[in-house]
Computed example of a mutant assay.
Amino acid sequence: MMANLFIIMGISGSGKSSVASLLAKHLNYHFVEADDFHSEIAKAHMADNKPLTDEMRAPWIADIISYLNKLYLQGTNVVLAYSGLKREHRQQFRYLDYNCHYFYLSGSREKIATQMESRNNHFFGVDLIDSQFQAMETILPEETDVHVIELDGDLQQVCSKVVRLTDELVN
């Protein structure tokens, strides 16, 4: 049976890590935080309120994919918290052998800014939120594996939506 890869995506501050962590616990899947794969240089760049370039993202994505390939060979089901800003980058995960599904946490600038301001000790500040909205490429109709989850409730309500969808996909 093919292992599952559920990717919780969205701009920084959308709640990806919180939702992905809770979903991984619910499903008893391995949780992977994409931010853990950023280089110290990239983290410092973002901490200086500078958005990453595609050139800076390339080795980060390659490292995540390499790690996911190792997990796949072990038969490990995964929930990944990952921005998914660019279609080209989302496509790279689709080439993996996993049964891949995306859950895009979509919300207003105001909602996400409020969530960002409540975080502590994160290298990505609220000053970069506009660059995230600009970098987020529209989900195309052919991206049928992307489920849009509106951030119209609290964390528990958003998690409940994602859990319902994943339960349908795994059963």
Rank of each mutant, 00 (worst) to 15 (best):
Asn28His: 10
Glu40Leu: 15
His38Leu: 15
His89Met: 13
Lys43Cys: 14
Ser39Tyr: 11
Val78Thr: 06
His26Asp: 05
Ile41His: 11
Phe31Ser: 03
Cys100Arg: 08
Val32Leu: 07
Ser66Lys: 11
Ala44Pro: 03
Ser83Ile: 05
Asp48Trp: 01
Asn49Lys: 08
Leu73Cys: 10
Asp36Ser: 08
Glu55His: 06
Ile61Pro: 01
Leu27Pro: 03
Tyr95Ile: 04
His30Phe: 07
Leu71Phe: 00
Arg94Tyr: 11
Glu88Arg: 09
Asp54Trp: 02
Ile65Phe: 04
Asp35Val: 07
Tyr95Thr: 06
Leu52Val: 12
Ala34Leu: 01
Glu55Gln: 09
Ala42Phe: 12
Tyr95Gln: 12
Val32Lys: 01
Ser83Gly: 00
Lys86Ile: 12
Asp48His: 08
Ile65Ser: 09
Asn49Asp: 14
Asn28Cys: 07
Leu68Lys: 06
Cys100Asp: 06
Pro51Gln: 10
Met46Thr: 11
Ile64Val: 11
Ser39Lys: 13
His45Lys: 15
Ala24Pro: 05
Ala42Met: 14
Thr53Glu: 07
Ile64Ser: 05
Asp48Ile: 04
Arg87Pro: 03
Leu52Pro: 05
Lys70Asp: 15
Ala24Leu: 00
Arg87Ser: 06
Ala81Gly: 04
Ala42Asn: 15
Ile64His: 09
Leu73Ala: 13
Glu40Arg: 14
Phe31Arg: 09
Arg57Leu: 10
Leu68Cys: 11
Val78Trp: 04
Asn69Ile: 09
Ser66Thr: 14
Gln92Asp: 12
Leu80Phe: 02
Leu85Asn: 01
Lys50Ser: 02
Met46Ala: 12
Glu33Ile: 05
Leu85His: 00
Leu71Gly: 07
Asn99Trp: 04
His26Thr: 04
Cys100Pro: 01
Pro59Met: 15
Ile61Arg: 10
Asn69Ala: 11
Ala24Tyr: 04
Glu40Val: 10
Phe93Ile: 11
His38Gln: 14
Arg57Thr: 04
Lys25Gln: 10
Leu52Ala: 10
Ala58Glu: 15
Ala62Ile: 08
His26Tyr: 01
Gln74Tyr: 13
Arg87Val: 05
Tyr29Gln: 09
Leu80Cys: 08
Ala47Tyr: 00
Glu55Met: 02
Ile61Cys: 05
Thr76Gly: 07
Tyr72Asp: 13
Lys70Cys: 14
Ala81His: 02
Ser39Leu: 12
Ile64Pro: 03
Tyr95Gly: 02
Leu73Lys: 14
Leu73Asn: 12
Ala58Arg: 12
Lys50Ala: 01
